[in-house]
Computed example of a mutant assay.
Amino acid sequence: MVMSSDDPGSQEAFRLLEKKTEAGVWSLDFTTRKMAWSSGFYELLGLASGSVEPSYEAIIELMHPDDRRPSGEFDRIVREGLPLDREFRIIRPNGKLRWLSNRSEVNLDKTGKPVRAYGVLLDVTPQREMALAREASDSRFRALVTATGAFIWTADAEGRILDIRNWRELRGQNPTDILGSRWIDLVHPDDRAHTMQAWTDALVTKREYSVEHRIEQPDGEYRWMMSRAAPILFESGTVREWVGISTDIQDRKVWPTTIDTEKAVLTGAQLRSARGVLNWSVRELSLAAAVSSSTIRRLEEMDGPPPGREDSLAPLQAALEAAGVEFLFPPTGKPGVRPR
């Protein structure tokens, strides 16, 4: 059989169910090691129904090399009657990659010996792609936070700090010591009044919070920080929580307001970092600045500034700054980049 039924109506209903759920059914006889596949199973593999003899080896031929089991593993599974539940990728004959999820059940005889296995194969590609996209987004977010040295925090509707997710990583301290309302103790005494006033006003008006203040460091010194937060609202309009970010602005506060223009030349490293902050591709920057992609790539190949005059740097800098990036040119050390 290819997975059949004597009732044509049942066959049609089964076939419709497979199509609507993007599923396929299979069975395996442990004694003969013969498999049977439904039409839906063939379709999931990208094969015409009945075009190949159902077998584990035929599945392996289409399976992504990184997902194939070690040699002899299938024999052990058959011998011990183990379930075949897993997710794996297959590369269809047309070259398209799909994620498939297999769920199975093993039937035993009276002595407990495995006799037959039945399973269903589901196409889970959309779910896997969404998960991978979230993972990529989270990775970019973590990289951005690490690169900027910013603290990400959440507070409840009343303004009590619930968590600072990277406090321990950046300061080597336990964040529980400053949760609730105890964080104010880290603010410089001269900055506490206007900090609390700004926070109170934001809580009352449900508007964005923004304040510059000095925060005590582990060594006892103070550094200037810019703290911003925005409310997350329920559909009713009440505040569910606040999400905030505190960014170090010490250099901006203490560096000279005038910069030697000879030294304030964008570097290739700054261009690469700025695109990373904005999550822009070379093409997106090219369109925003009206500068060719080849020119951008050439400039980004250099960690430092270009050796000669480069007229394309001005529109590139303007486009990136307009999108929310700030370029830093310290009196000493390497030029940098951060979100504005």
Rank of each mutant, 00 (worst) to 15 (best):
R98F: 13
L100T: 00
L100Y: 13
N102I: 02
N102D: 06
N102V: 00
R103C: 03
R103F: 02
R103P: 05
R103G: 04
S104E: 08
E105H: 06
V106Y: 06
V106N: 04
N107G: 05
N107S: 07
D109I: 11
D109R: 14
D109A: 07
T111H: 14
T111M: 12
P114S: 10
P114I: 13
V115K: 12
V115S: 08
Y118A: 02
Y118F: 14
Y118G: 09
G119L: 11
V120W: 10
L121A: 04
L121S: 06
L121I: 02
L122D: 08
D123F: 11
V124D: 03
P126G: 05
Q127G: 12
R128K: 14
R128S: 00
M130C: 07
A131N: 02
L132I: 01
R134K: 09
R134L: 05
R134N: 04
E135G: 12
E135N: 09
A136L: 03
S137M: 07
S137D: 01
D138L: 11
S139F: 14
R140C: 03
F141H: 13
F141D: 12
L144A: 07
L144P: 05
V145E: 15
T146I: 11
T146G: 15
T146Y: 07
T146N: 14
A147H: 09
G149Q: 10
G149F: 01
A150N: 11
F151D: 00
